[in-house]
Structures are given as structure tokens and as C-alpha cells.
Simulated assay, not measured.
Amino acid sequence: MAERPDPSPATLTDRIAAELSAFLTDRAGLLTEVSADLSVLAEAARAAVLTGGKRLRPTFAYWGWRCVQPAGAAGEAELVRAAAGLELLHACALVHDDVMDSSDTRRGQPAAHVRFGEFHHERGWPGSGRSFGAAGAILLGDLLLSWSEELFTAAIGCLPRDRARAATAEFDLMRTEVVAGQFLDMLAQARGAFDPDEALRVVEYKTSKYTVQRPLLLGAGAAGGSAELVEVLSAYGLLIGEAFQLRDDLLGVFGDPSQTGKPAGDDLREGKRTLLVALAHQAADPSQRALLQDGIGDPALTADGVARLREVLRQTGAPERVEQRISERAAAAARCLAGGSLQPAAAQALLQLAQAAAHRTS
């Protein structure tokens, strides 16, 4: 049988979107069988999952599989379906993250807790719309987490038992590590320190492992990848995951809101203890340090206040140092791939993903 051509990024994204849409349509039917009132929950789930998003985690899972298996190999459809479950997990994390950070928007649209709050307000119900919105978002996130396991388990169980077990082990670690990373992030904000090592530890667990490394290893495990391949992909995943998050940190402060889908300066208002602000604090003079300490984490920070903090960051040279680190991580990831015995198409795709992660604008 001739090998099927490799999918374009758009084609792969379409396959993942189709799996998600079909699954959510089916589960919406189950909800509305319970009560028509649950249609608002089903609609919120579709909005949280299907509106925007880069589908990075299932994409990395697919290319982890393709490091071992040729295009169209037996089990690929099941792997893509299982990988789509990672998007449900990610949607859960985003819904809960927006509640914790009091973020009003996500991907240019109202965040889930805002949608639920507006639903309450429009009906003129008594009580707090804000509390209703937060409660609705927590339940939505819980539902998405449950559905992620349901979709993943049903699909991965169709693969040979040893390969399904290897992929499931990565999925289990992925869920634990992202919660660990989120909690470490919360601790860093609560402590209020400007510690580069702490910032990088949060990046490793909240992004590097969760976004790149574990999805890659999940796909490779499902494909029957060797221990040598796991070592190569592990190193690549940590490097590119860090580059991706450091780019995200820069965009969170200096990005164009029309492209990022999030108001510029929100990370500063939320008090995110990123490597960017930690490096700036290290290099700042006393007056600059005072501005950073007073402004970062101030929820009432105005647009002028954001502009002043941006200027301090620039003056300390922190953005340039972060840019340099991103470039170094992307180059090191490319060297990892060059030393591994990957399928050529997969190696090329991972190189392209590395460049996209390091140099994206949204």
C-alpha cells in the first residue's frame, strides 16, 4: 500500500477540529437529554474548545507518532482522536486559569466565567452574577477534564496494549504536571519575588512539559518508539516548550492585542513572575526597581502605567536577553533533532514547529 502524503498543518488541524466537533455534538445531546437548561453548558463547552486555538498539543502528539510510523499507518486515526482529547484538557486549564487570574477575555472573546455571568444578568436573576459565572466556569472546566479522559481512553484503547499503556502513562503525567505548574505559578505570584530560577521552574512544568514534551512522548509511545527516541524528544520538548513560553511572556507585555486576543499588559496587572520581569528586576536601578515592585500585580494599573513598566523593561535590556534565550533554545532543539533517528518528514515538521514557537506573533 502506498504511503499517504503528509498532512499540511491546516489539514491536520481540520482533522483534530472534526474529532472535537463530533465528540462535543454527541455530548451536547447527552446533556440536553438530562435537561434543556444544560444547553448553555453545552454551548459554553463548544465555545471554549472550538473558538480559536493553535492545537499545539495534539499536533505535537501526532508528530511524535510520525517520528516512528509512516503516514497512514494502522492506528493513526485512533491516535489523532486520542490527541484531540488533549485539547479538551487544555480548554479545562484555560477556563480555570481565567477564573484564577480574573481574565475577562480569551482568544479575543469573553472568557467562560464572563459568559456565564452575562447569562445570569440577562435573565435578571437575584444574587451575584459574578459568583454564578465563576461557579459555572469551574463546573465547565471539570466537565472538560472528564471528557478529555473519556475521549482519550476510548481512542487509545484501540491500539496494542503495550503502546496504549505507554501513551496513557504520558497523559497521566501531563495532567499532574500542569496542575503542579499552575500551583507553582500561583505561589510565585503570592510570594512576590523576582527570581529567575523560580520563573524557569514554572515554565518547565506549566508549559514545556505540558505543551510539547508530554504530547510528543505520548505520540511516540503510542507508535512504539524506542528509548533513544524518547531521549531525543524529551530534550527537544523541554527546549521548545521554554522558547514557546518565553515568547508568550514577551507577547503578553509587548504584543498586539488584535493578534494575541488578550489585552496588552494583563500579565503585568496579574503580577506574573515571568523570566522577563525577573531579569528586569535584577538589572534595574533603585528607582526602576521601585516602579516594578509597585506596578506589577496592581489590578488597577492604567494604560499609562503599563507603558511606564514597558519602558522600564526595555531600559534594563530584559527583552533582548529573553529574545537571546529563545534563539538559543530553538537552535539547541534543532541540534537535538539532527542527532536523532527520526522519520525525515517528522524531523522536518518538528523543525518548522520549533521556528513557529520561537518566532510567532500571536
Rank of each mutant, 00 (worst) to 15 (best):
P5W: 10
D6A: 07
S8P: 07
P9C: 01
D14C: 08
I16M: 11
A18C: 14
A18T: 15
L20Q: 13
L20D: 04
A22W: 09
F23E: 12
F23Y: 14
L24T: 08
T25R: 03
D26H: 08
D26P: 14
R27Q: 06
G29W: 00
T32A: 05
E33D: 03
E33G: 10
S35A: 15
D37A: 06
D37R: 02
T51D: 04
R55Q: 12
L56N: 08
A61F: 06
W63V: 13
W63N: 12
G64P: 06
W65T: 05
V68P: 15
Q69P: 02
P70W: 13
P70E: 09
A71D: 09
G72V: 07
A77L: 05
G85R: 07
L89I: 14
A91K: 01
S102P: 01
S103R: 07
S103Q: 13
D104W: 01
D104T: 08
A111E: 03
R115P: 00
G117M: 03
F119D: 01
E122M: 00
G124Q: 12
W125E: 02
S128A: 05
G129K: 00
S131P: 07
S131Y: 04
F132C: 00
A135Q: 00
L139K: 00
S148Y: 03
L151M: 14
F152M: 15
A154F: 13
A154E: 12
A154I: 12
I156V: 15
I156C: 13
C158L: 11
L159M: 08
R163K: 02
A166W: 04
T168D: 14
A169P: 07
A169C: 07
A169I: 13
F171Q: 06
T176W: 08
E177L: 09
E177F: 06
A180T: 13
G181T: 11
A188C: 14
A190H: 10
D195N: 06
D195H: 04
D197L: 06
R201M: 11
S208K: 04
S208T: 12
Y210K: 07
Q213A: 11
Q213D: 13
P215R: 03
L216R: 06
G221C: 10
G221M: 04
G225F: 02
S226E: 09
E228I: 15
L229A: 04
L233Y: 06
L238V: 12
L239M: 14
I240G: 13
Q245W: 06
L246D: 00
R247Q: 06
L250M: 09
L251Y: 02
V253R: 07
V253H: 08
F254E: 15
T260Q: 05
G261L: 03
G261R: 02
D267A: 13
R269W: 02
K272F: 04
K272D: 11
R273M: 15
L275Y: 08
A278R: 03
A278E: 11
L279N: 03
A280R: 01
H281Y: 15
A283V: 15
A283I: 14
A283L: 11
R289I: 14
L292R: 01
Q293M: 14
T302K: 01
D304P: 11
G305D: 11
R314C: 10
A318R: 05
P319Y: 08
Q324W: 11
E328L: 05
A331V: 14
A334K: 02
C336M: 10
C336T: 09
A357I: 11
R360M: 01
